[in-house]
Amino acid sequence: MTKPDRQTDEDAFDVKRYFRHLIGWSVLLSFALIGGVLVFFAVRQFLTSGGTPNLLIALIGTPLMVLTGYYLYRTMPDFTMGEPNTKRGNRSRSIMVAVVLVGLAIGFPIITADSEQGGALLWSNGPIPATAALAALLIWAAALPILHFAGRHYGDEHTVGVHDFSMMVAGSLFYYLAPIWWIGWRGGFFPQPDVMVLFVIALIAATVANYWKRFA
């Protein structure tokens, strides 16, 4: 490979273009999953009751799932984000995959309970069945320290530095907001503090700080 080739190769990685591609791919993935869910329900209903309406849903869902799925397969983004395929890098990316899987595993008991009760448990702030809550909190409590340790162990110093910065921003915001809300509530100015609202604010702040530190 000649020097100009290498320069082109290096310049070819465009973060904004990569994320546009990734977002577009994720939206299409949602359509493919919706198609899969439609097919699943159509097949289940057909097996239990039969009839043309179920076939109609299958006729919509099957091409949606197959065609979108094939297109997604052909245009799958390079999840290395321009990074070299090193042991450390691959382990670091595996942790990101593990984070997503843990998220799904935590949501699964709640979604299962949700389908049994016919409510919207996942996105509500109401009570959930004790077994679902216990399963979700045990997964979170066991997985988070391991993922945190592995993330720091396999990340390079820049990655760890960016993570430390984003945690500092999120923590500082939490330290700042929590007493204001609490004292304001006791003074009768604000509604009762909600820990999950503070958690989401801190999470958003950490994500913005992380991306700012990496790409700004």
Binding site: E83, T86, R88, G89, D156
Partner: peptide, 24 residues
């Protein structure tokens, strides 16, 4: 550049990410 390395190649030599090389 003198060694004709890309950022990714230098990252492999140093066992860091390409983002780290770019940031440095």
């Amino acid at each position: 550049a003198e060694r004709d390395w890309s950022q990714a190649e230098l990252a492999i030599h140093l066992d860091v990410s390409r983002q780290a090389v770019n940031a440095i």
